[in-house]
Design a protein around this nucleic acid. Structure first.
Lengths: 190, 190, 190, 190
DNA sequence: TACTAAGCGAGACGGTACGTCGAGTCTTCCG
DNA sequence: CGGAAGACTCGACGTACCGTCTCGCTTAGTA
């Protein structure tokens, strides 16, 4: 189907993998700001051009690496109630916050580079919003959310708190935080 | 005390002003990412060294410029009720979102540069949190907030939504948003 | 002899022609320095490998193109006297100086690349020397050249002046120059 | 006079010297073609920018190095006769042909790069021509050169043979060559 | 009619150097 | 001693070509 063969030497899957891996390694070792295309290329044993041929910036490489690795989007199985659903969702999400350096680096870049911001929104942020939104839609159809409560605002509240804490790093994102936030949302939708 | 006269030529107030002004101009014209120390110095008619002598990075210059200009911190006069207080606070805050490029640029830099993150938190973010916190403390003493509701989480909710929308730019930060958020918080604290 | 048929697809005469033509075009339009194998391949609608299979460098391509086109080596019919022979030879040679960019480019490359220098000497420069040398040998057998005059030095004088002017471009290579040089040589061999 | 002091840090004589020296070394070791700005900078312990600030290309660096070192232009003391003058001049000139790689490299570059060709002509080739021209002018005023002989052509003959042999490297540039060429010129000007 | 062998266009690959930009530092002279 | 000027080293940028390496396809001679 998408197996159409283009002429010329095909893209090297090996190089692609090496680049994404090198990006994540470099990021973990020295942080997003210290990451350079030249460094990634060197570590991956790859020419710079091979990176520039497929990605417009280091942020796009890292984004691909992130998506590649965490392919399994946050699952939202129907747990029967908003409380259960939210608890499961926040648990799964908070468990991923060891990714903090990656996430915070990408967001930093997005805030400084409007071009990358677009890709980051479309390919990451909005997709995650979508998952959470479904969860609230389900609660609405169950009658758990009072009329007049905008589910989009609820999404903003949950992800707002999440990102705000990720960025400021002034409060934990653990089980207790998860429970607190769940209760707050439940009170707010009555 | 601070009136002590150090030997040698005193710092030039003129240069300081020119630098802060040049930083803001450059930022407005080409964005935070395109801002450079060299560019600021050139525009301000100042040697690079003069900037490096007083600020560690371009972000610190911009932060100073921001604080210098918006010295009047968000006021929180006691309006008599949480609803009124919150409405006033959000109104005043949202009215400042024409500063979006500055705020978003500074946050972006903070996410990439831990050194600046420190300064940004202490001198800007935490101070703003403090203002909002006072407002909630007043509501607690009025008995408007149910026991068991952590006022810190409330602060995170309000600033979380604010920053999340500032960053994603997917929903407005206007009067309607202000009202919606106020109502949500009020429901959540009952 | 060379008619042996090797197995496999035979070399494409069409591609060979397209490559030589593209090389000359590119050379005329942007100069020798701006000529690249990649550019020639693109212009000729040919894969890079096809060029590398048959020529070691861009200079060799251009040399082939030059020899291909100006196959008719400078003729040296016996005109009966050294003066007549020289006049004819210089006339024919100088008439070819519209090739200046090609010649100068090839010489430039030869001066920088010893590998190509070899090919350039053998296939071009020394052949031309040979033609002129014959002319002087004829004059010697006619007794027009005094004993003790090294005909090789005479060749160097003629081609030396020719190349020196081609390279410096400070004096014309026209009919007058041709006559002047002829007279000088005649005086020098008495 | 030229001692006017410009503001700012003055150019580093140390760096200038290191760059010229590094250029000559690199040239001698690996040849002109293998010389790179990056290599020169590295060897000289200097930033690339410092080279680009003062020279437009590697050829200009090498030209400066050549002129710097061989500041003592070929001397042309009046020896009393054309034969003596020419012998002295050719002797001095031929004795410098250990510079062959430098000279040939510069000429090669000049033939490929019209921009550099200009500098090379003005600052090197034409100056040398001038020296030789003076020598012939002296001979004219002595009555040693027949009327109707263009001294410019004589210069072209001498430098033509010199450069032609430098480039083709097919015949020596030694004492014998010097004498042969002198005699040829003397015969040609009678 | 297949099979083998090479040439072909296309284009991705690992490299090297390019020329530029800005960082942060150093060195001059002037107020 | 602060400040404007501007040269310094350094590191990364994004680009251009190099010469090499697959791909699938074509074009021959051979079986």
């Amino acid at each position: 189907m998408s197996g159409e063969r283009r002429p010329g030497r095909p893209r090297s899957e090996e190089s692609r993998g090496a680049i994404l891996a090198a990006a994540l390694e470099g990021l973990r070792e020295h942080g997003f700001a210290a990451l350079t295309i030249e460094g990634i290329a060197g570590r991956a044993g790859v020419g710079k051009q091979t990176i520039y041929r497929w990605w417009p910036s280091k942020a796009d490489v890292v984004l691909d690496a992130l998506l590649d690795q965490a392919e399994e989007t946050i699952r939202v199985p129907d747990e029967g109630s908003l409380r259960a659903d939210l608890t499961a969702f926040l648990g799964a999400t908070f468990r991923q916050t060891h990714q903090r350096p990656v996430l915070v680096g990408l967001m930093g870049q997005a805030l400084l580079d409007p071009g990358f911001a677009l890709a980051f929104r479309e390919r990451f942020l909005f997709r995650r919003r979508g998952t959470l939104r479904e969860l609230f839609d389900r609660a609405i159809s169950r009658g758990e959310i009072a009329a007049g409560v905008d589910p989009e605002l609820l999404v903003d509240v949950v992800y707002g708190v999440l990102w705000y804490r990720l960025m400021l790093d002034h409060a934990p994102l653990d089980g207790a935080a998860s429970r607190q936030l769940t209760e707050l949302v439940l009170r707010a939708v009555r």
